[in-house]
Amino acid sequence: MSKKKYIGFTCAYTPLQILDAAGFTPYRILPIGDPPDRAGQILHDNLCPNIKRILDRALDRDVPPLEGMVFVNSCDAMRRLADAWRRIRPRDRVFLIDLPVTTEEHSISFLKDEIARLTGTLGEWSGNEIATDDIEKSIKKYNRLAALITELNEKFSSNNMTCSRKEIQAIFNRAVTEPIDSSIEFISNFITENDKRSNESDAVPVYIFGNVLPDPEIFSFFESCGAKIVSDDLCTGSRMIPPVDISEDNSPFYSMAKSLLMRTPCLRTMDNSKPHRFGEDIVQRAKARKVSGMIGHTVKFCDPYLLRLPAIRETALKEELPILLLEGDCTMRSIGQHRTRIEAFIEMLR
């Protein structure tokens, strides 16, 4: 099977390894480009701009030929996206992974079964049963990709890459839209070519967290405001491809389920035993990067973040880490309106 047979996906909780093992190329439909705003008519204008933009891309036929779509029930908006997708592209094969909210053992077990169900379905879609060996090979490949992305991030964070954050974002986007083998090769070469001490700059080191921010230009914009985004906690950034821990003797499905739920989470996930832990962890990760401040950028109407930002802000203030909260719609035009606020924040940090 050609590696260019795409399966679309929209959430960083998608087990890409299974898509790859089935012989498909996972293609993340990122909320980029400039399709006309039409999704609000199908859903509602008061819904996550990430979802609306993805739907707008589909309505505008701005997606490659797809063998099917894999959605994740990660939030209300994602569920509605799956509904709307079925309505506007009724011929597409669609699979919805039911993703538990917590990280407990029963949640891992449930997700393991969901991944097994996905495997069966993708086997049917591809016409071949997916072998465990193939899944294990894919896990290793994705772990390699995740390690490269981590290396890239670490080197950039410690000023050991002669590239911009904009270039890194373009690489992140490539990693979820191109075949994995070519992505691994590309990133390896990129790291080798840019692995040099970068020039010192007077940009202020800032940590960014939130959900969806895939447009590389946005990072140039932050730089133009005087910020250097040294690290991120974004589902279109460093959270995009989590590694799978295969050190324990578990089935691949279990290992994948556990790794997906125990990964650096989107705030739709919660720790039952310690409320708001994941939000507080963001502040600790930012502090570990020795940044001067943090910027929270979330898409509008995102309930998982809207309802947790006050707790994050409170933690940041307690930890004496300056924080700026922004809302946007995944486009440059919305972030452009924040220029004055970002510049003032950076000035304050100097």
Binding site: L43, H44, N46, L47, C48, D76, R80, D83, D303
Partner: peptide, 15 residues
Amino acid sequence: PNNWGCRQGAGSRGL
């Protein structure tokens, strides 16, 4: 009545 802020309800409006 698409309760403002209800993604479950308002998000299903058009469908």
